[in-house]
Amino acid sequence: MTPNIGISPELLSQSAHSLNSILADEFIIYTKTRSAHWNVEGADFHSKHLFFESQYEQLDEIMDEVAERIRVLGHYAPATLKSFLELTHLNEHLHEGNSSTIFIKELLNDHESLIIRLRELINPLNTKMHDAGTSDFITGLAETHEKMAWMLRAHLR
């Protein structure tokens, strides 16, 4: 049953599609952060192992919130690796080396790319799709990723 929340089914579909790509991007960053947690090496292993764990746990919560927002709009969240790879704006770039610096630079780039993508969606969601709720939700995601990016960036100084 389509939600009766003052947004046409067509616009709900457009909002959900935007969120599908965000969910895919979140999943790619989550997977890459898990990889960093599992594979980091070096003198700073322990601290970075714990740092990456805190980040992937936060990303896990974000993915759940995005998927639930898609459901609120009356659509189903993509839930296969194939669909995530088709929908993402990021790549599965395979790094060379397992130092924390390599992982951090790669993850920082992904977070910043996602922040830019989120910013591009905020106004269209509100004005073109008449979905202030999802626009507000995306604004909150951007703020969360800005803080996560800051945490990564601070390790590079």
Rank of each mutant, 00 (worst) to 15 (best):
M1W: 11
T2N: 15
P3C: 10
I5W: 08
I5A: 08
I7T: 09
S8C: 05
S8R: 06
S8K: 10
S8F: 07
P9G: 09
E10P: 07
S15G: 15
H17N: 14
S18V: 06
S18R: 11
L19N: 09
N20M: 06
D25Y: 09
D25I: 09
I28A: 06
Y30S: 01
Y30W: 13
T31L: 13
K32T: 01
K32D: 03
R34W: 07
S35P: 01
S35W: 04
A36F: 03
W38F: 10
N39I: 00
V40P: 10
G42M: 07
G42D: 05
A43D: 09
F45R: 01
F45D: 02
F45Y: 10
S47V: 11
K48I: 04
K48P: 00
S54H: 03
Q55V: 11
Q55M: 10
E57T: 13
E57L: 13
E65F: 01
E65A: 13
E65P: 01
A67T: 11
E68W: 08
R69N: 06
R69Q: 13
R69E: 07
R69D: 03
R71T: 14
V72G: 04
G74T: 15
G74H: 15
H75A: 14
Y76G: 10
P78L: 09
A79L: 05
T80W: 09
L81C: 12
L81V: 15
K82N: 13
L85E: 12
E86N: 14
L87K: 13
T88W: 08
T88S: 15
H89I: 03
H89D: 10
H89E: 07
L90D: 05
E92F: 06
E92R: 11
L94C: 08
L94G: 07
H95R: 15
N98C: 12
N98V: 11
S99Y: 04
S99R: 04
S99M: 05
S99D: 09
S99V: 06
I104N: 02
K105H: 13
E106A: 12
E106N: 14
L108S: 08
L108V: 04
H111N: 14
S113E: 12
L114S: 07
L114K: 04
L118R: 04
L118T: 05
E120V: 08
L121K: 14
L121Q: 14
I122S: 10
L125T: 07
T127H: 12
H130Y: 12
H130G: 03
D131R: 08
A132P: 03
A132E: 15
G133S: 12
G133N: 09
G133Q: 08
F137Q: 03
I138P: 05
T139V: 00
G140R: 07
T144F: 01
H145A: 03
K147D: 07
M148C: 00
A149I: 04
A149Y: 02
L152D: 02
R153I: 02
H155M: 00
